[in-house]
Design a binder for these strands. Sequence first.
DNA 1: ATCCTTGCTATACACTCGTATAACAAGCGA
DNA 2: TCGCTTGTTATACGAGTGTATAGCAAGGAT
Lengths: 198, 198
Amino acid sequence: MSNQPAFSRADPDERRQSLIEACARVLAEKGAAGVSVRTICTEAGVSPGLLRHYFGGISEAIAETYRWTGARIDAALEQAVAQAGPDPRARLLAYLTANFRPPIASPDLLASYVALWSLSRSDPLVAAVRAEVYGQFREGLERLVRDWRPGLADPRLPAIALTALIDGLWLELSLGNAPFSPEEAEALAEHWLDALPG
Amino acid sequence: MSNQPAFSRADPDERRQSLIEACARVLAEKGAAGVSVRTICTEAGVSPGLLRHYFGGISEAIAETYRWTGARIDAALEQAVAQAGPDPRARLLAYLTANFRPPIASPDLLASYVALWSLSRSDPLVAAVRAEVYGQFREGLERLVRDWRPGLADPRLPAIALTALIDGLWLELSLGNAPFSPEEAEALAEHWLDALPG
DNA sequence: ATCCTTGCTATACACTCGTATAACAAGCGA
DNA sequence: TCGCTTGTTATACGAGTGTATAGCAAGGAT
């Protein structure tokens, strides 16, 4: 009987990343109440003690998961904009409508976000990352709005309006039970974009 | 030295209601992670054991808090519609814009909702009330949409679109840090309502 | 083939959680 | 004024939490 190794050593960055992704899965599947050092490590297939070798605490692990999730979304948005070509309106519209398709519009991502948002109320580390991610999102949108309407005195108001538009449609789409296709959401967003005052 | 009574007996309905409102305050202030039998009862000024005399468990207490919160919002919306007079468009617009003013647009209510939503993922009782409250909201909106556009084949799609509109603007307003007044949100909602296709 | 580093596991600790139970006492009916 | 009902408190229990610590062993270096 040849003894299999009881565990294997992994590249530090890969192990850390696997813990982050395990945390994201737990958040999506079990919600904020289901996330704990033990559930994360079980999901990642490692012993409970290992989390503290890669993170200062569970708060830091969750905060890093938030940061990773935000970066993933940001990458998807940037890619959509890049594929839209040079026209400012097309670029802005691509940014808006990318929110209505996978991987952004998804029940899992909505569940993760609700959990992370909920945790950010009682966890300062998570709250800090939330502000950081939200700021990045709004900054990217404001930049596209400025390119779209260069003469605009204050791009913040239309940016907020468009953020609200995205939020609402993304939410209803990600709930999954809406009688609503991504195409209809995109058509609506385009229609409302052109109807934006100012 | 006359001994003050160590506690006083209350009307069962009032005591139950005070626990519900204490639960709502805890949810708003400390989030989902801060709500527990002990924090709720401390907030209500009673001993921890009392909660189980009025509720089958903490899940039931939270679910009842959800139901009470939903009813409070529904009442505010109904009142706004009643004050709007007979014109269908005015009634629909009143329903929409009531979401942008207190008591509906409020950081506390947003915090409570995020917490309740988060809890509903792992707690079946809370999830059931969430479906119930969401159904009521959508039903009320669909009714107003039908009155507004009687010839419409399917009022569900515009109702979802308007729900998304409400969700997004309510969210951004309730965050509190938006460069955005309720009046601007109302003007935007009216503008987008008239631009609704179909 | 052996040593050594350190990734990894195993265990323990203090704390909080929801719930169950028994004793207490407030305040109404007599 | 006394007794009884029951709302209310106090206490205890097992389970789960995050964290700290000691020891094991994987696998590259020598």
